[in-house]
């Protein structure tokens, strides 16, 4: 299915990567390449994590409007981080090894996701409007509690939180790269192993059950994978609400009705092109200071509204 389109996307991505690495370089290549290489690696990790978590979530909830970010997963990650700093104190938290901080966050997010979303998603028949409302309420709630805790935190410690609360493609936490890559690798391996099951689960609760799948168990497995992938992307570049929706909607246009074995790589390639190409054009070519996340959320928000209106008129 669609081998040409995937190859075409890969070619475009290669051009974007070359542009990102070489355009506007000042100083010695020996310095520029490793410096940019680390950022590139982080962007690629995000490009693997965000679309994969979005596709898994949409398949399991059988909709193309909701995504983990829209349901408040990213906001929950930031809330957990803030709460940890609030409880432990910024100094204590920072004294933990980076790996320890990250693993703690990820573990808590997985637990919270299972508790909060597990029951909501495990019902056989889901009401999409109720889910959207729940997601919006969760998002607002998580952000409100985060804001509240941040105000209570010592201003010195606040800086630790702030870094993780906003989307930023320019300043990327590269010290997390290794642990994030390991976690993403594991989560992606599980996601890829699920690809045939996802094709069946997409047929709906009854048909999937008839074919021997267990939608409820699959939902919990997907929630754990999604929590891991959201942690990776949020830790690296912060929350970007509409990125997943944007790139997965595009992937459905490029490879319509594709199996997951094709849809997943397609969405990843599109996301990588969006992030790396977008960053190259904004930063290097146009020299604009508009953050890429603003552009992405603007476009993604428009797609969200479009899908919502289309869904309602049906």
């Amino acid at each position: 299915m669609y081998p040409r389109r995937l190859i075409g996307l890969a070619a475009v991505l290669a051009i974007c990567v070359a542009g990102y690495m070489t355009l506007g370089a000042q100083g010695s290549w020996g310095f520029v390449l490793p410096f940019r290489g680390a950022k590139l690696a982080a962007l690629l990790l995000v490009a693997l994590a965000v679309p994969t978590s979005t596709v898994l979530f949409q398949t399991i909830t059988q909709n193309r409007i909701l995504t983990p970010s829209i349901m408040g997963f990213d906001a929950l990650y930031v809330l957990i981080l803030t709460a940890l700093i609030f409880v432990l104190g910024g100094q204590e938290y920072v004294r933990l090894p980076v790996i320890g901080q990250f693993v703690l966050n990820v573990g808590l997010l997985m637990g919270a996701a299972l508790v909060l979303f597990g029951t909501l998603l495990s019902q056989a028949r889901q009401d999409i409007m109720r889910m959207i409302l729940t997601g919006i309420i969760f998002g607002v709630l998580f952000r409100a509690v985060t804001g509240f805790l941040q105000r209570m935190i010592d201003p010195n410690e606040y800086a630790v939180v702030q870094v993780n609360s906003y989307a930023r493609f320019g300043r990327i936490e590269t010290d997390l790269l290794l642990i994030a890559a390991v976690l993403a690798g594991i989560a992606l391996a599980f996601a890829w192993r699920m690809r045939h099951r996802l094709d069946v689960l997409e047929l709906g609760h009854d048909t999937a059950t008839n074919l021997g799948e267990t939608p409820q168990r699959a939902t919990l497995q997907v929630l754990v994978i999604v929590a891991a992938l959201v942690s990776v992307s949020t830790a690296l570049v912060g929350p970007i609400v509409f990125l997943g929706l944007l790139v997965v909607s595009l992937a459905h246009q490029v490879t319509p009705a594709a199996r997951h074995a094709v849809l997943l790589p397609c969405a990843v390639l599109i996301c990588a092109i969006t992030l790396i190409g977008g960053q190259t054009v904004l930063e290097r070519v146009l020299a604009l200071s508009t953050p890429l996340s603003v552009v992405i959320d603007l476009l993604g928000g428009a797609v969200f509204l479009g899908l919502l209106l289309k869904g309602m008129s049906r």
Binding site: E202, L203, G204, H205, D206, T207, P256, A257
Partner: peptide, 8 residues
């Protein structure tokens, strides 16, 4: 039966 509209 669940609809899977785009399936052949």
């Amino acid at each position: 039966a669940d609809a899977a509209p785009r399936l052949t």
